[in-house]
């Protein structure tokens, strides 16, 4: 019961602020509204007993990524303080595309036989994530550092070329 109430509250917070993200006339307000959206999703992770992922969500997405997006807005010449009409001429194709995507996703979600009550949950998920990184997922772990390396070098290459 409490879980259901928490889920409904988190869903409302997430959805309302997500609508503000796409509908606000003020682009900075749109970017800031990402924060409650992503925090609401972090709350859903907590409901799923994935507290480590929730922590990452708060640190990386609600923290770093939102600041990055704000930076990009502040870098643009006319983005600062400008008002935008966020609805353009593509309303009808956009609506159709969203409806098709939603129907497809729902078909997949309802069609999948989700495994229920298989095994017990670990007490702290971070411990099992660490164990997995050092045993079965070690290749993924090392490849991740290469992905980060490529991202870092790509950022430098692009920033150098811009100058």
């Amino acid at each position: 019961m409490g879980q259901l109430a928490a889920f409904i509250i988190l869903s409302v917070v997430t959805l309302v602020s997500a609508v503000v993200v796409v509908a606000s006339q003020n682009i900075v307000r749109s970017a800031l509204s990402l924060i409650p959206t992503l925090l609401g999703i972090a709350g859903v992770y907590i409901l799923l007993q994935a507290e480590y992922v929730a922590g990452i969500q708060v640190l990386i997405y609600a923290g770093a990524i939102t600041v990055l997006i704000l930076f990009v807005i502040m870098l643009t010449e006319h983005g600062t303080g400008a008002r935008f009409r966020q609805v353009n001429e593509q309303v009808l194709p956009g609506t159709i595309a969203v409806a098709v995507l939603a129907a497809l996703l729902m078909a997949v979600f309802f069609g999948t036989a989700w495994p229920r009550a298989a095994g017990t949950l670990p007490q702290y998920t971070a411990t099992s994530i660490g164990t997995t990184f050092l045993t079965s997922a070690i290749l993924v772990f090392i490849v991740t550092s290469f992905v980060l390396l490529v991202a870092l070098m790509g950022a430098i290459v692009i920033a150098r070329r811009e100058r």
């Binding site: 640190l59 770093a64 990055l68 502040m74 870092l152």
Partner: peptide
């Protein structure tokens, strides 16, 4: 709401990458 210098962007990108690295350090 002044326009930021573009140089900040590279710093924030590098920051995000090392932020993600720290995420991997913690479970380890």
């Amino acid at each position: 709401w002044a326009q930021f210098n573009v140089r900040y962007y590279l710093f924030s990108l590098v920051f995000v990458i090392f932020d993600v690295e720290v995420i991997y350090l913690y479970p380890w």
